[in-house]
Amino acid sequence: MTGERRWTFLTNHGHVLLAVAGAPDLRVAEIAAQVGISPRAALAILRDLEDDGYVLRTRVGRRTHYAVQPHRPFRHPATETHEVDELLAIFGRPPPG
């Protein structure tokens, strides 16, 4: 498989969202390792998701807790009639709330 192009159906943003939905108390480094990206990239993605209302970040003591916000539409015009809850359901993660 060396030298072959690899691609996935989900972006890193989608993978980070799924990681957060599955374990809201993961550290950024743990999310990065699960997704296969750097901690800096994971943090940037988490900021994107928070800025656009897909994830809510709260501090719990010295830890950060991330919560996926329910009923947010997909951003692409071709899929904007669907909500991220549907993606979570496909991968066996119940929508929050």
Results as ranks from 00 to 15, higher is better:
M1Y: 09
M1R: 13
T2M: 12
G3Q: 10
E4V: 11
R6G: 12
T8G: 14
F9P: 05
T11R: 13
T11C: 03
T11D: 07
H13Y: 11
H15N: 10
V16E: 02
L18Y: 04
V20T: 03
V20L: 06
A23I: 06
A23R: 12
A23W: 06
P24N: 05
D25E: 09
R27W: 11
R27N: 14
R27V: 13
A29N: 11
E30K: 12
E30H: 13
I31M: 08
I31S: 04
A32K: 05
Q34Y: 00
Q34C: 01
V35F: 02
G36W: 13
I37Y: 01
I37L: 00
S38V: 07
S38L: 11
S38W: 09
S38Q: 08
S38A: 07
A41L: 10
A41V: 08
A42V: 03
A42M: 01
L43V: 00
L43T: 05
L43C: 10
L43P: 00
I45T: 14
R47K: 09
L49S: 00
E50I: 01
E50F: 05
Y54I: 00
V55S: 00
L56D: 11
R57F: 03
R57D: 03
T58E: 03
T58R: 01
V60L: 14
G61D: 13
G61I: 06
G61K: 07
R62T: 13
R63V: 08
R63A: 15
T64S: 08
H65M: 09
H65C: 10
H65F: 11
Y66I: 02
A67N: 08
V68N: 02
Q69M: 11
P70W: 00
H71C: 06
H71E: 06
R72L: 02
F74V: 00
F74D: 03
H76T: 13
A78Y: 06
A78R: 06
A78P: 08
E80K: 03
T81S: 15
T81L: 13
T81W: 13
T81E: 15
T81H: 15
H82G: 02
E83W: 07
E83M: 08
V84E: 00
V84D: 02
D85C: 03
D85W: 01
E86W: 06
L87M: 15
L87K: 01
L88R: 01
L88I: 09
A89H: 06
A89C: 12
A89E: 09
I90Y: 04
F91E: 08
F91Y: 14
F91H: 10
G92L: 08
R93V: 07
R93H: 15
P94T: 09
P94A: 13
P95S: 09
P95A: 11
P96H: 09
P96I: 00
G97F: 04
G97C: 05
G97D: 09
